[in-house]
Design a protein around this nucleic acid. Structure first.
Length: 435
RNA sequence: GGCGCGGUGGCAGAGUGGUGAUGCAGAGGACUGCAAAUCCUUGUAUGCGGGUUCGAUUCCCGCCCGUGCCUCCA
């Protein structure tokens, strides 16, 4: 079955056909590690993890690279605010990120490069751009000269004039053109920096992804992904850098052939923002909810659509997850309609619908295979043993046997008040904490 | 202002040129001492106005509404 994806670059769905036969190579822009990941970061990780899982089912070899940005103004600011060491901060949040994403069922990328481990690659790339006349040094900075690249704007679909007209910020005086962007910037003595031909400094944001994707995947590679907000300027700038550094100016696809962008998560209809105070951290949600339920909730809307996060989203996902688990047996073949939906631009809502249909039809093997493919943990988490609750349940059973229903119901009510739900099954009572 | 995306039942959310998936919630029933869980049954929807067509929710135009991006936010 062919996998088709919507290519942001060409604005249409295209069949995925690896450039190197049988080997799909993809890169997704990962997080800047200055704080814990929020549910939006999680959506990106889950979407690309799913894409990789589907790709692995279809292609003999898949190489998935997703970076960690560990040098950035925001990290420096976070270090100043907390007094912590920069390396300690990036280390800590990288660890938390990976733990949280694992809890969401995301397999680690094949390569998770860190920007600071690729400074040399970036310097070489910047030097190449200078040599080819696409960049210039000014005031301690090295800037990419946008007018030197005629293909600029191909991804975001806007002309340079349009961007300049819409610019809301003051243009730095050292820029030759308002659209020029920083490749390398000087580092203050108390900021992290690396020696370079242009003095001690640090890389601009965009250059790291150009350097790391090229280093680990080679050029051109098949799929480049990230959040839709990265389309402009980040991905546009990556294309400009990478194409110019390699002297291919007439075809943006000589960097990455397909571009895949996931939509945003809103919370109760509002964009997540610090100013609104509605940022949902994956870490916090995982404390109260099961990772697999969160994952299913994140996949309940098509990845290119915005996803509005509400209690209802999660409630429905948890119920559906339970239904799938009930139906799942030993994994067999993924039902064709499920695979078909996933192959059609990762239509997860349709895939979930088909999986529930399979569950209802008694195709336990198909359901189990679907859950494995979609990265949904088939095992429900076990409640920790609690002798006190067990004792209360025993007392309740005795009361029921003696037809002392007032006592039995009192016990049930008491546990309910503690958030413990009792289910009476043919095999005896079970309990579970509401989460 | 520029570029883009979207408006489907109470809510979430797909698809489709020919009387509209799926889930959650709701209602009724089965089961239960009563519940819970589960199972069965079930009602309700395509923003507005034109156009193309035998026929439009689906294509085209206009309008209204919402929303994203516009130099470092996934």
């Amino acid at each position: 079955m062919d996998l088709t994806l919507y290519n942001s670059l060409t604005r249409r769905k295209e069949a995925v056909a690896p450039i190197e036969p049988g080997h799909l190579r993809l890169y997704a822009c990962g997080p800047t590690v200055y704080g814990p990941a929020h549910i939006g970061n999680a959506r990106m990780a889950v979407v690309f993890d799913l894409l990789v899982r589907v790709a692995r089912a279809l292609f003999p070899r898949v190489t998935y690279v997703s970076n960690i940005t560990d040098v950035d103004d925001k990290i420096i600011a976070a270090a100043r605010a907390s007094g912590e060491d920069i390396a300690a901060i990036t280390e800590k949040y990288t660890l938390i990120y990976n733990e949280d994403m694992a809890a969401l069922g995301c397999a680690p990328p094949d390569v998770q490069p860190r920007a600071t481990a690729h400074i040399g690659d970036m310097v070489a790339l910047v030097q190449g751009l200078l040599d080819r006349g696409h960049a210039y040094a000014a005031d301690g900075h090295v800037l990419f000269h946008v007018p030197s690249y005629a293909g600029y704007g191909a991804l975001s679909g806007r002309s340079r004039e349009e961007q300049v007209a819409g610019a809301r910020v003051e243009v730095a005086p050292y820029k030759r053109d308002p659209a020029d962007f920083v490749l390398w910037k000087p580092a203050a003595p108390d900021e992290p920096g690396w020696d370079s031909p242009w003095g001690r400094g640090r890389p601009g944001w965009h250059i790291e992804c150009s350097a790391m994707s090229q280093h680990h995947l080679g050029l051109p590679f098949d799929i480049h992904g990230g959040g839709s907000d990265l389309k402009f300027p980040h991905h546009e700038n990556e294309i400009a850098q990478s194409c110019c550094a390699h002297g291919v100016l007439d075809d943006p696809a000589t960097y990455a052939r397909m571009w895949v962008h996931n939509g945003f998560v809103t919370v109760a209809g509002e964009k997540m923002a610090k100013s609104v105070g509605n940022i949902l951290l994956a870490h916090d949600l995982l404390r109260a909810h099961e990772g697999a339920a969160l994952r299913l909730a994140l996949l309940s809307a098509h990845y290119r659509q915005p996803l509005d996060w509400t209690d209802g989203t999660l409630h429905a996902a948890a119920k559906n997850l339970a239904a799938l688990r009930r139906a799942a047996t030993e994994p067999g073949e993924v039902p064709t309609p499920v695979l078909g939906a996933l192959c059609d631009d990762l239509n997860t809502p349709a895939a979930i619908s088909e999986a529930l249909r399979a569950a209802k039809a008694g195709d336990g093997a198909g359901v189990a295979a679907t859950m494995d493919l979609m990265g949904l943990d088939r095992a429900a988490p076990k409640e920790a043993a609690d002798p006190r609750i067990d004792a209360l349940l025993q007392e309740r059973q005795a009361a029921r046997a003696a037809k002392d229903f007032a006592r039995a119901d009192a016990i049930r009510d008491q546990l309910a008040a503690e958030g413990v739900t009792i289910e009476d099954t043919p095999a005896g009572p079970r309990w579970q904490r509401s989460r």
